[in-house]
């Protein structure tokens, strides 16, 4: 294992920010794995640290293929992590909306550029992703449909679901989109939690990434049995939104199969406790996202269902 500083940035008042990569094996740039780009992505960083542990062991056993190099970047924005902020410390911009970056641009554009210049050219790119709302995801893998993709590759992770997303205008400045545009086959792996550590989901994500690297012939690793991944288009999944606001209680858990009309959760008045809304499923399918916070506004996505 080799530890490299990929990019550093001086701060007026803090120790220098050092974006650090851990490299395993030698030769062809085979896979890059990126963890936290936002300050609340603790689980994403944790999964990467677990990957470093696994790859260290594999490297010691000589289980990384010849002419293959793997790089893991556990955390890009630990500055924000250390002060409890999600986006960039000073101007609140999102590094994952700054790709491919610009070396002469604003601070977060420079960070994006510094990172991207080092993780570009890998054959596979894996990002540990999070969602902007508090909630839990069934571990799954997502790929942006940019026209350069081979969605069937998602099956090699052996997670329950692989989701294809049609990019929206605001996606065009994300890491994944730009990886694809520059010829890296890029995937987002969702490992359930964000600001807490979920060990089981982390296990699943680590095994999924190892399984994927093993299938591509980059490493040889033993992993638990995989799912036969079901591929689906994001537009064919259903979002169930809250029709009222108040105190939210889920009556179901992720991974469960539900029928149309089933009650998935309830919203009650925060003052008098009366039930103000029953959240019912509009389709039959499997719950793969569940909102997870005690209070909820109206029109908030509380469940996502794969039909």
């Amino acid at each position: 294992m080799k530890k490299k500083i990929l990019f550093s940035l001086r701060s007026p008042y803090r120790e220098q920010l050092e974006v650090t990569g851990f490299c395993f094996g030698h030769g062809k740039k085979s896979a890059a794995i990126v963890g936290a780009m936002r300050g609340n992505e603790v689980q994403q960083m944790y999964v990467c640290s677990r990957m470093v542990q696994e790859l260290k062991k594999l490297e010691a056993k000589g289980h990384i293929a010849d002419d293959c190099e793997i790089m893991v970047i556990p955390c890009v924005n630990y500055y924000s992590m250390n002060i409890g902020k999600r986006f960039w410390t000073m101007d609140n911009t999102d590094i994952n909306r700054m790709f491919p970056g610009y070396v002469q641009g604003e601070t977060t554009q420079r960070i994006a550029d510094g990172l991207f210049s080092k993780i570009q050219g890998y054959e596979y790119g894996i990002q540990l992703a999070s969602f902007y709302q508090p909630g839990n995801f069934l571990p799954h893998v997502k790929m942006m449909d940019t026209g350069f993709t081979a969605p069937a590759l998602m099956k090699d992770f052996g997670l329950e679901y692989g989701i294809i997303r049609r990019p929206r205008p605001y996606d065009t400045t994300t890491l994944n989109y730009n990886w694809q545009i520059w010829g890296t086959k890029a995937f987002s792996v969702y490992a359930n939690a964000t600001d807490i550590i979920d060990e089981n989901a982390a296990d699943e994500a680590v095994y999924a990434i190892l399984r994927f690297l093993d299938t591509q012939g980059i490493i040889s690793a033993n992993t638990p049995p995989a799912y036969v991944t079901k591929l689906t288009d994001e537009s064919k999944t259903s979002q169930i939104r809250s029709e009222a606001a108040g105190v939210f209680k889920s009556l179901i858990s992720i991974g469960k199969r539900v029928e149309r009309g089933d009650v998935l959760g309830i919203i009650s008045d925060p003052f008098d406790g009366e039930v103000v809304s029953e959240i019912r499923s509009t389709v039959s399918g499997t719950i793969y996202f569940e909102y997870c916070a005690p209070l909820i506004n109206s029109n908030t996505v509380c469940f996502k269902i794969i039909k």
Binding site: A244, A245, G246, V247, P270, F271, L295, I296, N297, S298, N299
Partner: peptide, 11 residues
Amino acid sequence: SAALAVHENLN
């Protein structure tokens, strides 16, 4: 308008 969690609407 949208209902916020606790006793308020965003207008």
